[in-house]
Design a protein around this nucleic acid. Sequence first.
DNA 1: GAGTGGTCTAGACCACTGT
DNA 2: CAGTGGTCTAGACCACTCC
Lengths: 262, 262
Amino acid sequence: MAVAYERIADELRAAIRAGELKPGDKLPAESKLAERFRRSVPTIREALRALRDEGLIEKQHGRGNFVRRPRTPALRSNLRHQWEKGRAREPLTERARTGATEHDTGLTVGDLVFHASYRTIEAHRDLAEAFGLPEGTTLLERTYRTRYAAESAPFSLVTSYLVHDLIARNPALLDEANEPWPGGSQSQLYSVGIELDRVEERVTARPPTPEEAAELELPPGTSVLALRKTSIDLDDRVVDVSDVVLPGDRTELLFTTPLERW
Amino acid sequence: MAVAYERIADELRAAIRAGELKPGDKLPAESKLAERFRRSVPTIREALRALRDEGLIEKQHGRGNFVRRPRTPALRSNLRHQWEKGRAREPLTERARTGATEHDTGLTVGDLVFHASYRTIEAHRDLAEAFGLPEGTTLLERTYRTRYAAESAPFSLVTSYLVHDLIARNPALLDEANEPWPGGSQSQLYSVGIELDRVEERVTARPPTPEEAAELELPPGTSVLALRKTSIDLDDRVVDVSDVVLPGDRTELLFTTPLERW
DNA sequence: GAGTGGTCTAGACCACTGT
DNA sequence: CAGTGGTCTAGACCACTCC
């Protein structure tokens, strides 16, 4: 114990928690801290790295080290699924007005930039299990990015899988040029006669891969929420599996569980 | 670009992803890697740190660097809330048989070790907002730890808040010596005439604080799930607010959203 | 150009693991 | 004891930001 960089990190952490250093404040230069604590610069940097890994500070090359501001999180509620289900059978003009993300965020369609790309793949083991189908089943893989028009980073990375044979009845569903499909996935499934019974979402947290960190513009010292959404129809078939990666520091998932009366 | 430690990390990462280095495998010693890549040891360590921060490898002092094995996650389903509600009014003997965690995990009561401590506090702003009550309202703060008998680290850190005046009618609720209360929180609330209408859970992900990392025995390069559970009764009152911290690498949250029929 | 953080070196010494 | 990772030094040079 009593390792130098830990003592330094403890002291700075205490100052931040006590509010002596407020969000947005600049820390003294690394060379100044080295003088103050009578340690070499690399040792100071070790302490600062620990604080960065906790999400407490942010390093800005050429500018300094700053106390990080907590992010205001975007909300994603599971009520969106019921809302989307109600939307799915509405006339096109109504559906086109706004989507589930707009419903969650209170934004309008013009605030968001949307991109999708499709390809067909064969189910590997993980996906085959999720669908309850044999390995090698043909799937349609759809990759989605949505971002605020004013920001460069998308707020989620979505990969959705559909069983090719289930949706091939409506060829429009196989063409990415038809995205964004007004009314969302449930409307697409409705066009081939599928109605959802329930949605299951599995949530875990982990550090981002370098690819995810780059695409979501995540600073070091942040986590992602990994969400696997499984949509199940009235016949208990899994009709859609979606993997969603969300930045942990700017996303809040809200799940409401209604309870039956006594 | 083309920074030395990034190239080295990329090469090792590719080897792990390709399966050339399998989970549990030992990497070459840092000094060997330094020779192989013709770089100094600190540079190698920088690359290894990046891989550790991604959760790909694990450092073991005096032994070596190892490819990390994926953890098998414990499941926590929101169906537990309805299950607990049904349980709350059962006779004591029935309630004592098993709790919600046992329901989720399939374990029996003897597999788990439980600890609780109580104290009264005054609501600060964050909590007052969550309850929709004035700041300074007296709350009962309950801190819970549950762990597998065979493991030393708890699998969750739970802090629950109840409005003191709402539950004071039953003095047994104010004494931590009565924990674990058979049937859980909903049974406790039932003893003062409260029935829940719904449960709301807000989920975010972030790196652990050093205190959380120590208590949950989290290795560096892991994230936690931070869950705030709000219990709302039939009169739309918030009757319980619980903050739950779960290790991201060994927890999976499952939320099922049933949908109304067309 | 001054100030600041980013990368890297070459090596010392300590602490832990296993034989 | 040998092997390995953990901490730390003192300094060089590069890259970015801002005046």
